[in-house]
Amino acid sequence: MSALFLIALFCTALLFGGMAFFAALIAPLVFRLLPAEMAGRFIRGLFPAYYIWVLATSAAACVALFPLSKLDAGIMAAVAGLTVFLRQVLMPRINALSDRVKAGDASARRGFDTGHRLSVAANLLQMVAAGVVLAGFVF
């Protein structure tokens, strides 16, 4: 096994594991154990770091995978690119809409709900993509 193979495997496993841990344990526990307002603030504060984690691990996996598998490197590049959009464009838009809803602007609710669903779907797509690349190391 080459060093690049091990680095790519490690980074992809960190990516998938971090995303799965956040989705399956952290987010549900936060919303179950904390009052809604506090849970929302906590998750809002956590998401920028979460997206940096996803971006760093997917970009590192992309670089390590490039000489080994252009397809897998491309998948990781797509995950990284989508993460930049989610962090820099969609997350601030969702946060602004959430603030408007909290301020009593009922017309912002639909936009918030749509943005949130898009964010969840994009994260699920990224996790599936990371899982497919990770499975490729085994099969």
Rank of each mutant, 00 (worst) to 15 (best):
R93F: 00
R32F: 06
M127E: 07
S58M: 11
R87L: 14
G104S: 08
A3E: 11
V63Y: 15
R110G: 06
A121D: 12
A61T: 05
P28E: 09
Y50N: 02
K70C: 04
F16M: 14
I7E: 14
F31Y: 13
S98H: 12
G81C: 11
M91F: 02
T12Q: 09
Q88F: 10
L134W: 04
R109W: 07
L29N: 08
L4T: 04
A106W: 03
C11E: 15
V89G: 09
A108M: 07
F5P: 01
A96N: 05
P67C: 11
L71Y: 13
V30N: 00
A49F: 09
A27S: 10
A80S: 12
V120W: 02
M19D: 02
V30Y: 01
S107A: 14
P35C: 08
G136R: 02
L65G: 07
K70R: 15
W53R: 03
Y51A: 03
L4A: 05
F112W: 13
L29D: 05
I26H: 01
Q126N: 13
R110F: 09
N95K: 00
V132Q: 05
I52L: 14
L46G: 03
R117N: 11
L71I: 15
L118K: 06
K70D: 11
F139K: 07
P92N: 00
A77H: 11
A27N: 01
A39V: 08
L34S: 08
L134M: 13
D105M: 06
V84K: 03
P48Y: 00
Q126F: 04
L6F: 15
F47G: 00
M19F: 12
K70T: 14
V54G: 02
R32V: 01
L4W: 08
A59D: 12
G81F: 02
L4P: 01
G45T: 05
A64M: 14
V101E: 05
P67D: 11
L9Q: 06
F21R: 01
F137G: 07
L97V: 02
K70Y: 14
C62S: 15
R44K: 12
L118W: 06
V138P: 02
L34V: 02
A39D: 07
L134I: 13
L29S: 10
G115W: 04
A108N: 08
M38Q: 13
A122F: 00
A23S: 15
F31S: 03
